[in-house]
C-alpha cells in the first residue's frame, strides 16, 4: 500500500539546505594584501669631509632607487626569494639634497620581512639581454654627485657617477640586504634612509685632482667609483625601517 506523502520530512531537508547556505561564505584564509607608502630620507650635508683631507661641497646629488623586493627569507636573492612579500616596482630618482620625499607605494602581504633586494636604477631582469638603465636613473646612472672638492689651495670641480650593475642576468644590483620589520596592516610606512654623506666620505679626491679635465669625471673606471660602490652596498647601504 502506498504510504501517504510526508511533506514534513522534505521540509526538514529543505531547512538543512538553508542552514548550509547560511554558512556558505565562511572561509578562512592566510596572509592579507596590504599597501602602504614608502619615503626616502636622504642624509647629506652640503659640505662634508672626505678622505685625505678633502672638503667636498655638493651641488647635485641624485640617487636612483628601485625596484625593491621585500622578502620573508633571510636572503632576498632571486633564487632564494622567488615570492616576495612586498615590492616597489618603480624606479625613483631621489634628490639627496632635498628632504624627505615619497618613493611610492609598497604593495604586498602582511607578515614579517627579513631581507630585501633592490636595484639602483640599472636593471638586468630575466628578460633583458643586458644591464639597462631605467628612464628615471639620473643621466643613466645609479648615483650622480656633482660639486667641488677642496684641499688647501687645490680646488677640483668634479662629477662622480656610480653604476650599481647586477652581476648577472636575473639578479638584483643588491641581491640581498638585511631588513627587519613586521607589517600587520596597511597603516605601516617604510622609510629608506640614504646616507650619502658616508658614501662620499669614503672617496679620495686625489684621483680627481690628477685628471686633466674639469670638472673631473669619476666614472666606472675610477677608484672612486669602486670605493663609492662598496660604501653603497656594504658600508652604508640604504636602511629600511618600518613604522606606523
Amino acid at each position: 500500500m502506498k504510504p501517504p506523502p510526508r511533506p514534513h520530512m522534505l521540509s526538514r531537508v529543505s531547512a538543512l539546505l538553508a542552514a548550509a547556505l547560511a554558512f556558505g561564505a565562511c572561509v578562512t584564509s592566510s596572509q592579507a594584501e596590504v599597501s602602504y607608502p614608502a619615503y626616502a630620507r636622504p642624509i647629506l650635508a652640503r659640505t662634508l669631509l672626505a678622505q685625505n683631507g678633502w672638503t667636498v661641497s655638493v651641488s647635485r646629488a641624485d640617487v636612483a632607487f628601485g625596484p625593491l623586493y621585500l622578502c620573508a627569507a633571510q636572503s632576498g636573492s632571486a633564487t632564494l626569494c622567488e615570492t616576495a612579500v612586498g615590492e616597489i616596482l618603480r624606479v625613483q630618482r631621489v634628490d639627496a639634497l632635498a628632504g624627505e620625499q615619497p618613493l611610492g607605494a609598497v604593495r604586498g602581504l602582511e607578515g614579517p620581512i627579513r631581507s630585501a633586494g633592490y636595484d639602483m636604477g640599472i636593471t638586468w631582469f630575466d628578460t633583458q639581454t643586458s644591464a639597462t638603465p631605467a628612464a628615471a636613473a639620473p643621466d643613466g646612472h645609479s648615483v650622480v654627485v656633482e660639486g667641488v672638492a677642496t684641499r688647501g689651495a687645490d680646488t677640483v670641480p668634479f662629477r662622480l657617477v656610480v653604476d650599481a650593475v647586477p652581476q648577472f642576468q636575473g639578479q638584483r644590483a643588491v641581491p640581498t640586504t638585511k631588513a627587519s620589520g613586521v607589517v600587520t596592516s596597511g597603516d605601516a610606512r617604510l622609510d629608506v634612509t640614504f646616507d650619502v654623506t658616508r658614501w662620499l666620505a669614503s672617496v679620495d679626491f686625489d684621483e680627481a685632482l690628477a685628471r686633466p679635465e674639469r670638472p673631473a669625471v669619476l666614472d666606472a673606471t675610477s677608484t672612486a667609483h669602486a670605493t663609492m660602490l662598496v660604501a653603497i652596498k656594504a658600508l652604508a647601504p640604504p636602511k629600511l625601517t618600518w613604522g606606523p
Binding site: A20, L21, F23, G24, A25, C26, V27, T28, S29, S30, Q31, C71, A72, A73, Q74, S75, L80, E82, T83, V85, L109, G111, P112, R114
Partner: peptide
C-alpha cells in the same frame, strides 16, 4: 613548514583549502 628558501609558504595551518568552493548549488 617554512623553509629558508620559502619562509612564507602560500599555505598555513588551518586555512581554507585553496581553489575549492565551500558551497556548491
Amino acid at each position: 613548514p617554512p623553509t629558508p628558501e620559502n619562509p612564507t609558504p602560500p599555505y598555513v595551518s588551518g586555512q581554507s583549502l585553496p581553489y575549492v568552493p565551500p558551497l556548491v548549488l
